[in-house]
Amino acid sequence: MDSEPIKVSGEDVRQTRFRYYDLVMAAFVAILLLSGIIGAGKVATVAGFTFGAGILFFPISYVIGDVLTEVYGYARARRVIWAGFAALIFAAFMSWAIVAMPPADSWSGQEAYETVFGQVWRIAIASIIAFWAGEFVNSYVMAKMKVWTQGRMLWSRTIGSTVVGQAVDSLLFYPIAFLGVWETSDVILVMVTNWALKVGWEAVLTPVTYRVVGFLKKREGVEIFDTDTDFSPFAGREARKV
């Protein structure tokens, strides 16, 4: 039977190898990429409400980001954010390169391919910048609130960090992607609406977050508090291996 997790600082476990960390990282990057590639290209209408289909799944990456910071600390969450950032850049480049290749005369799928995978570069850049900034803010707020609350009230950290992180994400993405293309009032309306939906998703998924966090903490055996962590996005001491 797994014992109760031991309270430690981020520095105490800097060289520790965890059992499930790599799997959580893979889940984060996979959901991030798939929600952008599959979900971003479709606008759906459900019960009279029209929205980008990707919004149903992209917030899950924020939930996993919360789990990473809560269970493994800010330093390891930082590595995952950089991995997701690099994956988004590669996905944008790969989409552009493949769409740009001249199609064979016998292949008739170029138009459909361009519709699904042809990205407007302004939107792609906005998405990458907004993700990077929003995720780091989300993880920072999550880690700081854990220290402030002494590890209590997980719900306050998951929702509070998402309120701030998604606000930064939305404040960057929508103006960079659409200001000057849409009416300013439409940019503001969509920005606020999607921010509220993402925060709402986080609240709805709180019971799931509690279960996943509880499972991972017991299996990993530690409760990490970022009391001595360098919160710079560019620090890399945690990357050294035993």
Score class of each variant (00 low, 15 high):
50 T>G: 06
228 D>R: 01
218 K>W: 01
180 G>H: 10
8 V>L: 11
210 Y>L: 12
213 V>T: 02
205 L>T: 13
45 T>D: 06
184 T>N: 15
164 V>S: 05
175 P>M: 10
199 V>I: 13
221 G>L: 02
214 G>Y: 07
186 D>V: 09
120 V>P: 01
195 W>F: 08
61 S>W: 00
220 E>D: 01
33 L>R: 04
198 K>P: 02
85 F>I: 10
30 A>V: 14
74 Y>Q: 06
186 D>H: 12
210 Y>V: 03
190 V>F: 15
74 Y>P: 01
181 V>F: 06
20 Y>K: 01
184 T>V: 11
219 R>S: 08
9 S>I: 06
36 G>S: 05
62 Y>R: 03
51 F>D: 04
91 A>D: 08
198 K>N: 03
107 W>V: 06
59 P>E: 13
12 D>V: 11
100 A>D: 14
83 A>V: 06
42 K>F: 13
116 V>S: 06
213 V>E: 01
130 A>Q: 09
224 I>E: 09
83 A>F: 11
160 G>L: 03
38 I>Y: 13
217 K>P: 04
215 F>W: 15
158 T>Y: 03
82 W>L: 05
20 Y>V: 05
109 G>I: 06
122 R>L: 04
70 E>N: 08
84 G>Q: 10
69 T>A: 08
125 I>L: 14
218 K>Q: 15
79 R>T: 14
161 S>Y: 09
127 S>Y: 10
126 A>E: 10
29 V>C: 02
40 A>W: 07
151 G>N: 07
4 E>Q: 14
8 V>D: 10
196 A>C: 05
180 G>V: 12
123 I>G: 01
2 D>Q: 12
53 A>E: 06
67 V>A: 03
31 I>Q: 09
104 A>E: 13
193 T>I: 14
49 F>V: 15
169 D>P: 04
65 G>T: 09
42 K>E: 09
146 K>G: 03
128 I>C: 07
35 S>C: 11
119 Q>N: 12
194 N>I: 15
96 W>N: 12
172 L>D: 06
181 V>H: 08
67 V>K: 11
212 V>S: 11
118 G>H: 02
147 V>C: 02
188 I>L: 15
165 G>R: 08
91 A>N: 09
141 V>H: 03
94 M>V: 12
21 Y>L: 13
196 A>Q: 04
212 V>R: 14
40 A>F: 12
64 I>N: 00
87 A>F: 05
81 I>S: 04
135 E>C: 00
157 R>C: 07
98 I>R: 09
232 S>R: 05
239 A>I: 11
